[in-house]
Amino acid sequence: MKTRIALGAVGVTIAAFGALRFLQTGLANMAYSVAWLVGGVAIHDGLIAPATILLTLGARPLVPRAQRSIVTLAAVVLATVTVTAIPVLGRFGARSDNLTLLPRNYVAGWFVFAALVLVCALAAGLWSARVSSRRK
């Protein structure tokens, strides 16, 4: 219990330092940031998480039981990695005077990535079907 209390105290102190630094950025800056702080949680909890559940419920009847594992896992890779690619897929930072920034065709890159996930999922599906048929 002592370890936990000490650890908790360290955490609170560090967070308090962060809060103080945040206060020092000024009211206008804090107002802009709070929109992002609250917005991030709201978008996840109110949009991404429920949408994931609804998509899962919607897709369930369409996917045969034997394939549900593979499809779920492929969707996890596809969705979470795509989130990391949002800024480049949208090319939001692109500038006409700097062609070295965002130099790739990211949409084509995404299709290559998605195709790779698909191929791996198919291979894993075939592999597990072979293994389970051998067991029988």
Binding site: R4, I5, L7, G8, V10, G11, V12, T13, I14, A15, A16, F17, G18, A19, R21, F22, Q24, T25, A28, N29, Y32, S33, W36, L37
Partner: peptide, 24 residues
């Protein structure tokens, strides 16, 4: 609209502090 460097820095301390508290 926020100042990136100052805000990303301040919130980093907030994140690490609350993470340590969460672990505790």
């Amino acid at each position: 609209g926020f100042h990136f460097r100052a805000t990303h820095y301040a919130i980093a301390w907030l994140a690490i502090g609350s993470l340590i508290l969460h672990i505790a």
